[in-house]
């Protein structure tokens, strides 16, 4: 790869880097704005005077959110559910994706169709609720973990990655007498680290962002997941804000508990930063050449 870089390529590199700089700014700036709001005074946020730097800097908002019992409880819930759920889901998904990725498995097509069918059809909210209720899992962490512990979509992605792996390595291992489990654990998984990282990220983000689980299966606030807390906080303040203008709401019930915009911004920041930190951490598995290197080594 030590060839001389042509003029054309240098132009391409520069333009490419600049285009991504521009694109990156469009996605980064709104986040910086949200961050600045969370450190700004309420008046400045309300009047829309906050740009990329806090106006009327204060830390009270974070102090408030971090001492809010429901936020802390929900935060812990979501971390717990995300960790356990992702681990369980990865095991299940690998166990299904591997057999279905082998072209020689009899009945493979039918089996895949069996999985694809449930990706597209479902029985709806009532029977699923009754199932969870019947298993006595309402108001438990299980209700948040189990129903989404396997995603057909992710399984198909992983299966596709497995299919792309060079078969030669597997064949030679098989000739050495290795069984399916050995091949999966010692060869397939180490060779598919980028894929495993991707699917793991999808599951983790899925669990972290899961909000319907709380809506359907939780009434005890102790188990409320973070996204439901966040959603309800935002809905509540929007509803009150809306009501103040249209007059169509019961002031007595809400007693003016509209959540200030700065608190909303801080809550959004605090709830999205942990999961966003996962990706840079996973990026070391996305290095090109890792696949072959791991096998050779």
């Amino acid at each position: 790869m030590k060839q001389k870089i042509s003029y054309q390529e240098r132009v391409f590199q520069t333009v490419n880097a600049l285009v991504f700089l521009a694109l990156g700014l469009t996605t980064l700036l709104p986040f910086v704005n949200l961050l600045a709001k969370s450190f700004s005074s309420e008046s400045a946020v309300l009047a829309g005077r906050v740009g990329l730097w806090p106006e009327g800097f204060q830390l009270g908002t974070y102090q408030y959110v971090l001492t809010e019992p429901q936020f802390r409880q929900s935060f812990v819930n979501s971390i717990l559910v995300t960790l356990c759920g992702t681990a369980l889901a990865m095991v299940l998904t690998c166990m299904v994706a591997y057999p279905l990725s082998r072209g020689w498995l009899r009945g493979r097509r039918l089996l895949i169709l069996l999985f694809v069918f449930v990706m597209l059809f479902n029985g709806g909210m009532v029977p699923t609720y009754l199932l969870i209720n019947g298993m006595h899992m309402l108001n438990t962490y299980w209700a948040l973990i189990l129903p989404s512990a396997f995603s057909v979509y992710n399984m198909i992605l992983l299966k596709n990655f497995f299919e792309e792996l060079p078969e030669s390595v597997e064949e030679s291992a098989r000739l050495d007498g290795a069984g399916n489990m050995t091949i999966l654990l010692k060869i397939i998984l180490p060779m598919s680290l980028p894929a495993i990282a991707t699917i793991g990220l999808f599951y983790a983000v899925g669990y972290w962002n899961n909000y319907m689980g709380g809506v359907l299966y939780i009434t005890d606030p102790q188990y409320k997941p973070l996204q439901q807390y966040l959603y309800e906080l935002v809905t509540e303040s929007q509803r009150i804000q809306e009501g103040m203008i249209t007059g169509d709401y019961n002031m007595d019930r809400d007693s003016m508990n509209a959540t200030p915009d700065a608190i909303r911004a801080a809550t959004i920041m605090l709830s999205s930063v942990p999961i966003m930190l996962v990706y840079p951490f996973l990026q070391k598995y996305f290095v090109k050449g890792l696949v072959i290197g791991s096998v050779k080594g």
Binding site: N122, L131, V152, L184
Partner: peptide, 30 residues
């Protein structure tokens, strides 16, 4: 042999979709 252990690997996943997806499908009649 090779196939048998593969089918065994599939069992947990199949049970999962059976319980959490196929079983509740009766609900579609509503």
């Amino acid at each position: 042999n090779r196939s048998l252990s593969m089918y065994l690997l599939l069992i947990p996943g199949l049970i999962f979709i059976l319980v959490f997806h196929y079983l509740p499908m009766y609900g579609a009649v509503i």
